[in-house]
Nucleic acid binder design. Structure first.
Lengths: 254, 254
DNA sequence: CGGTTGTTTGAGGACGTTCAAGTACTGTGG
DNA sequence: CCACAGTACTTGAACGTCCTCAAACAACCG
């Protein structure tokens, strides 16, 4: 752990600008502020690993974090003892990015609320400023503040939609179609016309998120060229959004 | 729609036995009871279709319902009641089961809370008794009852876990492994020993749920035989659970 | 008994992965 | 500024998985 610090004024401002914490009464906010701390984490940092118990709610004040599921689990760990960051996994290291959180998002509130171990690991993929709020504080807020509970439910509802949409994509669209659909999400939801797009992550990460190999992502990009997509580096240009939408069988259901 | 009726005593009892509604004050319960109704729906009935706005929260008092995502326009082709759209009516009528809800579950509370159109359709896969609660009533409860908001958040958190687990399976396990993992969920969470299992749905449905073709499910069942799985009809027998667990790289994270 | 439906099996093909090699794009130090 | 190394990305070929289509079974029901 590095660059640790208590919560300052500007971080608190960032917090209360989020709907989740906006309506929290002063007393609860004091609780949060006094027991939480701030960390700056560089790319590749691990916030927590799959299997650990949920100690903190991680609020991303700035940056980007990926939730990563891996299929190799440490050999037969009977009780949830606290292994630390020095552990290295076994040979086959297959892993997949399940979700990507950005500024203003909150990472795995589910595990925190349910007081269960994390089902996945969290890895920083762009330099990040994070507020660590103790799980107990969050659960206290859930139990004692109706507004917080309400906002939590709404946030989880939105995330449920994101996940089920992704699951739908995964089950009945090809890799190339998923890529197209992803590009469309970067086009601000417009349904026709030209679009200039900046992809916010490297190919390997994007491939893992879309559920395909990096090599195949390359080929998928090539396959989109005839549909009117020019790519160079992280920049992409879509000639006609409607064409890509048709190609991906995209619906309007957000 | 058939067998419609207002909510009776026994249905109300079923409702308040669910954590979601258990703590609701009498006034709110009256609201719920007076504005809701009960329906019995047979297999293959459609509760709602992808794209419709969320009018009701569907509470499953008994039975089983599948959430189905489809990539083309939602038109069920049981009867040739053809609606030819201007869109290309693509030959492939692909669809996939995203989640399956059973007795005591609630269907797509996310769309209801957010007041957004359904992202998927709901199809009855086993005769079902359902309470239809108007969306406005649910949203009213969310806004005005802290306990309800809390329970909603917890329920959504559990569902988030289910979905992300499924997404993980989908992204980094083979079809056969997913099948094995599914059989394990039917073994009451035991981690070793023998198990006798009754599969609660037909092959086609199960295949769609596991994200594979019915044909491939057959082959996957055959592939599990060497690992100690005997199947006949809907009955299955696992010789040694631990062996399947190893085969599927199953972790303990629920 | 034929008809209907659900499941299995086989062959061919589409899609995706892996390994390997090649190319383009960083940055660093000379 | 270039040479260089290191990394990221692309491309190609071989292979495996999964899907599709078609046919063969099996089970159930009139």
């Amino acid at each position: 752990m590095k660059d640790s610090g208590t919560m300052d004024r500007s971080s608190l401002d960032s917090l209360i600008s989020m709907p989740l914490f906006a309506a929290l009464p002063a007393a609860a906010l004091d609780q949060v502020m006094s027991q939480s701390f701030i960390q700056y984490q560089p790319t590749e940092a691990i916030l927590f690993e799959q299997g650990q118990s949920a100690q903190f709610l991680h609020v991303i004040l700035a940056g980007r974090v990926a939730l990563v599921g891996s299929s190799t689990n440490p050999h037969h760990s009977d009780h949830p003892a606290d292994h630390n960051e020095t552990e290295q996994a076994t040979a086959t290291d297959r892993e997949a990015i399940i979700e990507i959180f950005g500024t203003g998002d909150v990472v795995t509130i589910a595990a925190v609320l349910l007081n269960l171990p994390y089902m996945m690991s969290a890895r920083v993929i762009a330099p990040t400023r994070i507020a660590y709020i103790p799980a107990a504080v969050i659960r206290y807020c859930l139990d004692n503040d109706a507004g917080f509970a309400r906002e939590t439910a709404l946030m989880l509802a939105r995330h449920w939609r994101l996940l089920s949409r992704q699951l739908k994509d995964q089950k009945l669209r090809s890799g190339t179609q998923r890529l197209g659909a992803y590009l469309l999400t970067l086009s601000d939801g417009r349904t026709s016309g030209r679009a200039e797009i900046e992809m916010p992550m490297d190919r390997r990460t994007l491939a893992s998120w879309l559920g395909m190999s990096a090599e195949n992502l390359s080929r998928a990009l090539a396959q989109l060229k005839p549909v009117g997509v020019q790519v160079s580096g992280r920049h992409a240009q879509i000639d006609e959004i409607a064409r890509i939408r048709a190609f991906c069988l995209e619906d309007d259901l957000r």
